[in-house]
Each structure stands twice: as C-alpha cells, then as structure tokens.
C-alpha cells in the first residue's frame, strides 16, 4: 500500500434516526499530511459522521468517501484505513492477542504485524490476558493497536486519549504528528480542547449535527484567546447547558 495522498471527503451526509436528525448536510474534506481535529460537544454528531464514513451506519442521504471510494468498496479496508471507535469493542472473553489475530486474518495482514503493533502500544506483556481483565487504558491501547495493524494510509481515531495516562497521551500525540508527517491522513475526534490545540493542524467543528467551522488551526482561532474560546464562540448555545 502506498501512503500517497489519500483524501477523505464528506459530501452532504445526512443521517436521521426516525425523526431525530443526527447529522445534517455534513460536508468537509480531510487532507493528507496533516492531523485534522474533528471537534464538537457530546452528541453533536461526531461519532455518527465517523460511523457513516466507515460503513457502520447507513447515511439517509449523501456520501462519505475515502480515496474516492466508499469504505465498503475497499478490497482489504484495514490496509488503507485504521479506525478506533467508541462503539467497536473487543469481545471480553477473548485474549488481547487473539483479538488482533482475527482482525489480521480478515484482511490478509501478515501475522508478524500483531507482535509489532502490540510492541508499539506497549501491550506485549498483557497480550495473553483476556480483554475482560484489561483496564480502560489498556483497552484503548488494544483498540489503537488494532487500528495500526494494516499500516494504513488513513487513521481515524474517535476520542483516542480516553483512559490514557499522561505518558500515553504524549505518546499518541507524537505518534500522530509523525504519522501525518509521513504524508498520511489523520482524522482525530475529541472534545478536549487543549489536547487538540497541541496536536491538530486543521480543525473541523460540528455542533447540533452541522459543520460550523472548517479551516486551519490559526484560521479558526484568529480573534480568540484560545481554541477553547473559539470553540465556545462557534458552538454558542451549547454552553448554556452547563451554566
């Protein structure tokens, strides 16, 4: 797999659950060689957008494409795209290493990658334990390992720092920066502003299911004290929930 310039494009994606509109007319693209932050409050539509992109949920209308193709049309998708999603968990009664083995088999990824990614996320010693014995942080590391298995040109991570310790957070930040520098595409969703400000090059902000801002980090924060201030200005009415 070459890692040259794979673009992610959302084109007018709308998803309704019954009458409730989860996301409406979501349109943006993610460029290679950059870390793109996907920002929004809880329930704004981040996960739904990513689930549609990854073929888990069916869009009511619109399309989301990776390298010009729908995710499901990629022949061995994990060799192009690695994803970590909140609602995609390993089965608790399986050992961590077995979880990676079946994923590798499904996409004809060499078995040797299993050891490599376990090493990369620091789970080698815990590989033979059952997932039910893992801590939140270890589960998160296992999820990241699964995403890295196919050495993908695109990484899509939903709240990757959840449950990670400061060391892990620093590791993932540096890792993602390096990954993007190699010309690969990184889409990172989070609601942690300081984390995002230190990692992302580009920022897409979603609120109430609609994209409210899309641009480089300096563009988005221009005229505001910080990314956080910009975020609250953009997602306006949301903050009153906590007031």
């Amino acid at each position: 797999m070459s890692h040259a310039f794979v673009v992610i494009e959302f084109k007018g994606v709308t998803k309704r659950y019954g009458r409730k509109v989860a996301v409406a007319e979501v349109t943006f693209s993610v460029r290679p060689g950059k870390v793109t932050g996907f920002l929004g409050p809880n329930g704004a539509g981040k996960s739904t957008s990513l689930r549609v992109l990854l073929g888990l949920d069916h869009a009511t209308s619109g399309t989301a494409l990776i390298d010009g193709k729908r995710y499901r049309d990629l022949r061995y998708p994990l060799r192009t795209v690695g994803a970590l999603l909140d609602g995609a968990q390993p089965a608790p009664d399986r050992r961590g290493v077995d979880h990676l083995i079946w994923i590798a088999r499904s996409n004809r990824i060499p078995r040797s990658r299993v050891g490599e990614v376990l090493d990369a996320v620091g789970l080698t010693d815990a590989a033979k334990q059952r997932v039910s014995k893992y801590s939140l942080g270890m589960r998160q590391r296992l999820g990241i390992a699964a995403a890295l298995l196919g050495d993908p040109a695109v990484l899509i991570l939903d709240e990757p720092v959840n449950g990670l310790d400061p060391d892990g957070i620093r590791w993932i930040r540096n890792f993602l920066r390096d990954y993007a520098t190699q010309g690969r595409t990184v889409l990172l969703s989070s609601h942690l502003m300081t984390e995002m400000a230190g990692t992302a090059d580009d920022v897409v902000v979603i609120a109430n299911g609609r994209i409210v801002a899309d641009g480089s980090l300096p563009e988005i924060t221009r005229g505001h004290a910080s990314l956080e201030a910009a975020f609250f200005a953009l997602t306006g009415e949301q903050k009153q929930v906590w007031a």
Partner: peptide, 18 residues
C-alpha cells in the same frame, strides 16, 4: 451471539464492511 456483545459487531464490520 458473541457478535452482539458490547459493540463487537462494529469491529467485525470495520474489518469486513461488505
């Protein structure tokens, strides 16, 4: 039934989207 525990199905569909 293993597939319908704790979002495991999503992981399977990510690996084999068709």
């Amino acid at each position: 039934g293993q597939e319908f525990r704790e979002g495991h199905l999503a992981q399977s569909v990510l690996a084999v989207p068709r």
